[in-house]
Amino acid sequence: MKFYQEITLLPNVGDEIPLTFIWEKLYQQLHLAFVEIIDDQGKVNIGVSFPRYKSGGEKRWLGDKLRIFAESEQALEVLCLAKWLSRLNDYTHMSSIKSVPEHVDGYAVFRRLNKKSNIEKLARRRAKKLDISLEDALAFFKDTEQRQQSDFQASDYPFFWMTSLSSGSKYPVSVVREDVGHHETRIGFSTYGLSLEDNDLRSAVPIFR
């Protein structure tokens, strides 16, 4: 990835607009923008990173910055972020298109947490906390979608909310970061700008200050 744009989220304390609300509105628009450029294989050629990402317990958060990466300057021009984010001008600041630094700190994969694979981990945590059997804890997560979403938030990973355009219901998208040193592999990105997965292959984006 050779070019990027950076979006800074600007929560307005006076208006009591929290960062989580801005992330939700921002990502709803980004998702629509990425859907417009999806290819015939269901892939997007633009990926994202969260430069101030933190995970683990109460310290988890996405930060207040998002970088949008592309292989070419033209790809970002076609995406036209300014059009999609025009309604968020009071709550976001978008940079011009810039070149990725020649020397970067490394590469990282930002991918969506697989909810199904995470349920067993959460169930073990619940069983230990409540001193119940693992079977009872697993049954709790399989009970209702609402409960699954509630406890899904209790994972160690930060997330943003999305609203389904078909049903109007909200669902969380948890983000996992995996540092991969100085190795860059690209197999494509989803309509969240997050890495797709193909066996052990994932798409990495550059990390720098």
Rank of each mutant, 00 (worst) to 15 (best):
D151F: 15
L62R: 02
G42P: 11
Q146S: 14
F69W: 02
S72P: 01
S99I: 00
K59F: 03
G168C: 06
D198I: 12
L32V: 08
R126N: 13
F21A: 14
D131N: 13
K25Q: 14
T191C: 10
R87V: 13
I38V: 13
D40F: 01
D131H: 11
S55N: 05
E120H: 10
K170D: 03
P51Q: 02
F69L: 03
K25V: 07
L32S: 12
A139K: 11
L134I: 12
Y4P: 07
H93T: 04
E73V: 01
K65N: 02
I119N: 07
L19F: 03
I17R: 09
M94G: 00
A139D: 09
K54S: 11
A108Y: 04
E135N: 06
N89P: 02
S174L: 13
N89Q: 15
N199F: 10
I68W: 00
T92C: 14
P51Y: 02
K54Y: 01
Q153D: 09
H103E: 15
L88C: 08
I37C: 10
Y53N: 04
Y53D: 06
I38S: 08
H31F: 09
E145G: 12
L130W: 07
Q41T: 02
V109L: 10
I132C: 12
K43E: 11
G188I: 04
F140G: 00
P158A: 08
S166P: 02
L79Q: 00
N45S: 10
E178D: 13
K128D: 15
A139G: 10
S195T: 11
Y107W: 07
S99K: 15
D143G: 09
E24G: 12
P18Y: 08
L30G: 00
L9Y: 01
T144A: 13
V78A: 01
E24K: 09
L85Q: 10
A127P: 11
V44N: 07
V205Y: 05
I17Y: 10
Y171I: 04
D200W: 12
F189S: 04
